[in-house]
Write a protein that binds this DNA or RNA. Structure first.
Ligand SMILES: NC(=O)c1ccc[n+]([C@@H]2O[C@H](COP(=O)([O-])OP(=O)(O)OC[C@H]3O[C@@H](n4cnc5c(N)ncnc54)[C@H](O)[C@@H]3O)[C@@H](O)[C@H]2O)c1
Ligand SMILES: NC(=O)c1ccc[n+]([C@@H]2O[C@H](COP(=O)([O-])OP(=O)(O)OC[C@H]3O[C@@H](n4cnc5c(N)ncnc54)[C@H](O)[C@@H]3O)[C@@H](O)[C@H]2O)c1
Lengths: 211, 211
DNA sequence: AAAAAGTCGTGATGTTTTTCACAAATTAAT
DNA sequence: ATTAATTTGTGAAAAACATCACGACTTTTT
């Protein structure tokens, strides 16, 4: 659908722009330049202008961008007018933290169901999100298309396969396992240990100049 | 230090390679090809060979790579022979999940101290990590150079400034705030809401072909 | 011993992403 | 009105990254 020509790097920044535009709007700001936005989101101003330009001419020369207009534009581009329902598998330490966090206000995303293999957790709820047994995935998942995966790494592959069979096509994978999925399924890996370790590596091997 | 010429994209993959090599080694595997590794970590085999080649000729034509040798090489490249101590600021939902997770075995990283503003948490410990009051940062932070930041977004900027003044030069920032730091400080943002939202965006706008 | 199969390292090429730099347009100041 | 200051949108260039494809070498098979 839409424009298949929006670069992936651009697409990844859209939610970021959206959030800052929301902030600006709430602060009552009417206009904003790519330079200001650049300072706020730490993305080069030329990159921001380029990003926006893929969607047409959203700004005005000499003026900048109208906050309200831009916000509205991105709201619909990001489908923020409707709630996206997602499920979470693995209500452990990390999973619980996500369940307690609301993605609704800023992202219009709601975790509506959680699943776990631990029967002592099943039947309870965390911040209003009911926890089902993972064996009930088939009956309970319904038409949810996006899943947050926070199970132990050893379970990841097996669960992922089940999810795919149930029609899931997006997985946000927090396990260290690199799961194998058919090409029509999109997996984003967030590998916290790798992030931490690579930060440490950069610090030791890429000394940054002082000022 | 070392080679300033290792591409950032390569550097980010090193911890991933390291983890899989560890797995292979524990499984008793003696050799591995870039093709096998590629299937495991989902990175093109040419990319893997290119990545490795920045460090010299680590493999042998017709044979592949010796697991133990490669593992040893990356262990020292990633400074895995010594424990890296990090601190965590904000022992809330997300912070607690991190405190309960051990980065020691696979990454040789240990969270040794946590800080929070909530005095009901101060003095306790989570899985052996003591929680101090954030006002004691100066006395307690000592020579810790890397910090995981899991405070509310509104606090991020102020805390970050304090951290920088205390000599921190690496921040893993989980808050949605894009913090401003001097150029000698490295910040890696992990923006969970953005990750989730961009996954949703990709699914709606980049339909993947079925097989 | 020779042939076949496997695999690395890398020059060359292709792709994606970022950045520069400036004409064109608008706004603000004098 | 005129001039100065802003700021966009984008062609062009640069930088970063990924992939192809093959010679060289090793291992395995026959
Ligand atoms: N917590 C962290 O800071 C952290 C850091 C890096 C990586 N991770 C990764 O994130 C994942 C989750 O970590 P965690 O700390 O929350 O672990 P955890 O053990 O606290 O939680 C895992 C949860 O999954 C449930 N579970 C186990 N098997 C299941 C199955 N087959 N189906 C459904 N649920 C099942 C368990 O009952 C548990 O509630 C792990 O893969 C871990 O490696 C976590
Ligand atoms: N939990 C999630 O799933 C999630 C998702 C996306 C983003 N985030 C971001 O991660 C951060 C942490 O989220 P959370 O859910 O753990 O929040 P939380 O409210 O549970 O935890 C924040 C902790 O920081 C402490 N704190 C407050 N002010 C402080 C200060 N000045 N110094 C030190 N500690 C202070 C609080 O006492 C609390 O313990 C937030 O910025 C949030 O936006 C969290």
């Amino acid at each position: 659908m839409d424009q298949n020509k929006i670069p992936q790097a651009t697409a990844k920044r859209l939610p970021l722009y959206y959030r800052f535009l929301n902030n600006l709007n709430q602060q009552g700001k009417r206009r904003v330049s790519s330079k200001e936005l650049s300072e706020a989101v730490k993305v080069d101003s030329a990159t921001i202008r380029r990003d926006f330009s893929y969607f047409g001419a959203l700004g005005k020369k000499g003026y900048g961008y109208n906050v309200e207009y831009l916000l509205g534009f991105f709201r619909s581009t990001l489908d923020q007018h409707e709630v996206t329902e997602v499920a979470l598998i693995g209500a452990g330490n990390l999973g619980t933290a996500f369940l307690k966090y609301s993605f609704l206000k800023n992202n219009n995303i709601r975790i509506t169901k959680a699943f776990d293999a631990d029967s002592s957790k099943v039947g309870k709820d965390i911040d209003g999100v009911p926890i089902f047994h993972v064996s009930d995935l088939e009956e309970e998942l319904e038409n949810i298309r996006v899943v947050i995966l926070t199970v132990p790494a050893s379970e990841a592959e097996e669960i992922a396969e089940k999810l795919v069979n149930l029609g899931v096509n997006g997985i946000l994978n927090f396990t260290p396992a690199r799961i194998t999925v058919p090409s029509h399924v999109r997996v984003h890996h967030i590998d916290l240990a790798v992030e931490l370790q690579s930060l440490v590596y950069f610090l030791k091997h890429y000394p940054l100049e002082k000022e």
